[in-house]
Structures are given as C-alpha cells and as structure tokens.
Write a protein that binds this DNA or RNA. Sequence first.
DNA 1: CCTTGGCACTCGAAAGTTCCGAGTGCCAGT
DNA 2: ACTGGCACTCGGAACTTTCGAGTGCCAAGG
Lengths: 340, 340
Amino acid sequence: MLDDRKLDVLRAIVEDYVATHEPVGSKTLVDRHNLGVSPATVRNDMAALEEEGYITQPHTSAGRIPTDAGYRLFVDKLSTVKTLSIAEKKAITSFLAGAVDLDDVVRRTVRLLAQITRQVAIVQYPSLNRSSVRHIEVVTMGARRLLLVLITSNGRVEQRIVEHPHDVDEQLIADLRSRLNTVLAGQRLTDATTSLAGVPELFAPGDRALVASIVTTLLEAFTDEVGEQRIAVGGAANLTRYGDDFERNVKPVLEALEEHVILLRLLGEATNPTTLTVRIGHENPFEELATTSVVATGYGSKSEALATLGIVGPTHMDYPSTMGAVRAVARYVSQILADS
Amino acid sequence: MLDDRKLDVLRAIVEDYVATHEPVGSKTLVDRHNLGVSPATVRNDMAALEEEGYITQPHTSAGRIPTDAGYRLFVDKLSTVKTLSIAEKKAITSFLAGAVDLDDVVRRTVRLLAQITRQVAIVQYPSLNRSSVRHIEVVTMGARRLLLVLITSNGRVEQRIVEHPHDVDEQLIADLRSRLNTVLAGQRLTDATTSLAGVPELFAPGDRALVASIVTTLLEAFTDEVGEQRIAVGGAANLTRYGDDFERNVKPVLEALEEHVILLRLLGEATNPTTLTVRIGHENPFEELATTSVVATGYGSKSEALATLGIVGPTHMDYPSTMGAVRAVARYVSQILADS
DNA sequence: CCTTGGCACTCGAAAGTTCCGAGTGCCAGT
DNA sequence: ACTGGCACTCGGAACTTTCGAGTGCCAAGG
C-alpha cells in the first residue's frame, strides 16, 4: 500500500514543513528534494498518503501538512536520531562541569537544554524515592525553635522548622542528634517510618513530647519529598517562535508550565536514559496541548532512571535534532551525577 | 496651567483606558464618568493635556491614550493605593501560613502575587548580606568526598562538595566541624573571611592542605551567596492578557524572565516595605521593555529590607489595585519571616 | 501498469476600494 | 468660561477583485 517512494515523499513533506512552516505542494517538493519523479506522480502519492491519514490539506487548494500520525510514522520509521557535533558535546560537558551542587546541576541542565533545542525545557529534580539518609542535623534557632536539616545520599538537602513550647536543653539536642543519626544513617527514606517509631521511648518521659513532634516533622519531610517531585523549567522565550495563533499554541503551554503537576504528567514515567519518549500532539494527555509535542527521557544511572527531563515544543519541530539533543543532555547529566 | 478639572479628566482617561484598552474620546468620557461638563469642554482640556505631554493620539482621528508621563502623574498625584478586602487579606495569610520552609515561602509568595495581581510576579530570595552563620556541618560522602552544609540565621541552607585526594579520618572531620563552628557561629557572612584565615594553622601540618581547601570552598559559598541573588518567577501565563502585538510586548518580557540579572535590575534596590517603587514604561532600564511597567517593594523586617518582590506588567495596568496587592503581599511575607 | 504533461478548476491570501462614524478643532453664541 | 454646532479627518470594517499555487483527472507514452 505504501511503497518506499511514498514514504520518501512523506519524509520530504515532514522535513520541508518543519523547515518552512508552510504547507508544501507537489511542485516545490520535487524542486527541493530530488525525488526522481515528476510533480504529477508525487501528487498521486500524496493523495494516497492523505487517504491513509498521514497528511492533510489545510484548505482545498493548498499544499499538504503532516498529521500527528504522519509525524509519528516519521519519527518511528523514517528518521534517525541526529547525533551532536563534537563541538556541541564539548560545550555540554564543560557547561555542566561548572555546577557547584545538585540544584546548580539542574538549573544548568534546564538552561542548556533550552538553548540547544531552542524549545521549552523541563527537568525534574532527582527523586528521593531511592535515596537514603546521609545525615540529620538539629540546630537551635532562638530559644523555642529548632531547625531540622536532612541530607540525603544524592546530595539533596531539606530543612524543616519545629516550634516547641519550652526552652530546650542543648544537651538534649546533642543527644537527639546522635540518636537520630544512629537510627537513620543509610536508611532508605521509604523505610524510615519503622525505624523512627521507637525513638521517643529512648528519652526521658518529660522530653518525649518534643521528640515525638520532631520525629513527626521528619517523617513528613520524608514523605513530602518522596511525593513532591520538584521541577525546573526554562526557555519559555522560545515559545515566541511558535508562529502566530498565540491563543491556541502559546497560552496553553505557558499555563501548563505554571502547573508542575501537569508537567509531571507530560514528562511521564522516567524511562531508561537510552529510551526516548516522544509524544506527538494529541498523544499527550491534555487536549489543550494538541498542537504540542513532548520529547523526554530519563536520566540517572545507566541501569536506573532517577528522574525525567525533556522539552515541549510545537508538533512541527525538528524531531531528529531535538531527540539527539535531549538524549545527549540526559547522558551527560547522568554522567555528572554518577561522578558526584 | 493644569487646574483641578484637567487633572480629573486625566484621571478619567487613565481609568477608562486601563479598563477598556481602547483610546478614549471626549464623548464616551463624559458619558461614563460624570464630570459635570460638556464634551466640548473636555476636548479643550484634552488638548491642554496633550500639549503638556500627558496624553497622546495614536492617530489623528482617534481618542487619546495616556503617555508614560500621564501614568506617572496619575500614580503620583491622582490615585490612592487600593487596600485589599478583608477576604483577600485572609486568603493571603492562610495561603502563606502553610509554608514549610524558606523556599516554600518564596514559592508561595510568587504564586500568590501572580494570582492576585494577574501579572507576572518576581520574588527575590532573601539576601544573605545581613545574615550570619548559624551552623556549619561537615559530612563524609564516600571515602574521598566531603559535603559542607551551611545554615544561616535566616534559615537558608547552602551546600558544597569538596573532593580530596586521600582518605580522611573521621576524627579529623569531627575536630574540624567543632572548630569551624566555634570560629564562625554568629558571624556575619561578610565578616567570615578574616575569621577563617587562621583556621588551617590550628591543625597538624599534614592536614592543612585539606583544611585549607575546605576553608576556600566555604568562603566561595559565602561570597557566591552574598552576590548571587536567586530569584523566583511566576504567572507567565498572564502575559497572554497583554493583548496583541505579541512580538513587541510579550517576547521581550519572556526573554527578560530568563535572565535573572535583568530581573534584579528591574526590581531595583530593596526599599523599605512601606515604599513602593513604580517604574513606568521607558523609566525602566531596558528599551525593549518600554511598554512594560514594574511595581516593586522591599520585604523583610520593618526597619530593614531583606530583598525585593514585585510584578511586571503592561504600562496600561490598574496601578491602584496592583500597588495595593504588592504592598499587602510584601507586608504579610515580612510578617511570616519575622515570625520564623 | 506506472509515469508524465496538459488542462480546467478551486479557493485562500493579498491588494484595492468603499463606507462609516468616532473623534477632532474651531468658532460663534450665551 | 462653557457649550452647541459644524466641517473635516482618517483608521478600521466590510466588501470586491485579482492572482497564483496547488489540485484532480485524463489521455498519451515508455
């Protein structure tokens, strides 16, 4: 039904449309891409492609543009992910190498991804699901306030403030600090609940109320973190290149960028860093983003994804380059994180 | 030159134009606002106002719109900052009260500000300039890596990783931790340089290289932080309400939002929380943002501003309401921070 | 049987035209 | 000093015309 030449024509249409953002007709197509046939032949092929639902006409007498299905076929069968140039790779590593801490890695990654793809970039912070407790610090802040600091194995730091009714003995704090660390050090965050259960009983009855409230806050911090899933976004200015029809294309994306819950659903499950997820137009779970595609992948260790990163852009994006960039960035970030 | 009625007319023009976004003529003006005079009289006044540069005509036969100077006069002399309703105030306090840590306060503030002003909100993280060292933690991460955690008096936590060539003795770490805390506790970040200078000499010659590198990293963290000035941004989706002329109005703002250095200059110096800074159109330091106004103010303690927050929006915004909202949010955030 | 040149046809976009009325400035009258 | 009246301006909306890229179909040719 769809022989090789028809597929060639589809590929040419996609490439042309992505480059020009204008419906492409049979004449221009044979001019620009050297398919060895006449416009009339191409017309027949186009009719077949339209029949199959891969391309469509915006209005009766105009060229064709790819449908979501057309892009899908293009991505799956007709294109190969473009690898970056050596210069680009170098730029990536050197840009990421300057990061001073985990937050900085994420910030730099977003910026980088936005710059090289020229799209809106989204990076999920590494999840704490798999991480464990490195250290817990308890510090007094004024007479009746304590600051809890949680340091996790992947370098993330969380803090919580605990208020308490009476003044607290420094000795008690020191005691608490050492006990918490003994009990929790090396524990998975998800396992901490059981370990913490017995802690209050180790203290004198008069102190138990305070200790219990600290333990509760700590547990909250653990579960919050496991669930919360922070996200960084960048490159929103690239939305201005979407072309016109601002209301339909740009506004929904801007709105989605504000809602991290939506972004998480867009990014989808963290995949293995070698697998790219591409969601084209209506394939993504939000109707308002029907003219928008998502290219995402996991990052983290080779075997196990820590979190997801990706880009959001118009369906008529340059998939091979974008996919190459996303994949490359994910790899290099994984490398940086593995090193540190 | 400009009697009271002319000023009334200017006020009416600004209010009308802000409400409708359409040039306003003498007839409609008299209809909507009950100035007790005829359109002809208003026309004369308008001619005078135009002469003085407060209003202008987009084209010969259209109504007038305020110039930047017109808005300036309106803000300075013709309007009073609108106070929020009790319901709004309650909503603010309850929304901010749920914050779990400093980062969360900032995130919530941005969101809140964006929502009630329906503009793009910008919040600078509290500066460390005035803050002091609460605690320093040194934790081993694997055999050859140390994590430094700096906790400041205003609850901010910074982290740095230090690599080192040989394995490190736990005893040395404990020693280092206690000495650093002894030397630094309560010190202003800006004063820390001198205090830290003598620290390496307190250790055995063999350990001094390591200690020195830690001290250096710590100092870097101090100065970085004092200089860096992090920023949170939200409500970009409100840009879609700018009206058309996307390229001229929206694009530059989106671009500015990516550049935190630019945002800092836009926000300007932190002022006392009771003083609002309003920068209208060309008054702000970037030509591309000539159609954009900034409303900002400091927040922090009553006497001393910690940092700045504000909004960015089109020059034709509702200044009284916006200013009221910005001021109210700044006050409530200050209160929250003072409490914690 | 697939390909091609030819041809009549379609229809959106761009350019041109007309029309309307909100808005203006000015002046004479109260 | 204010007002009603009046001639004038000119941008925007609505309509018309023109243009040409693009199409589908068909008959002829390898």
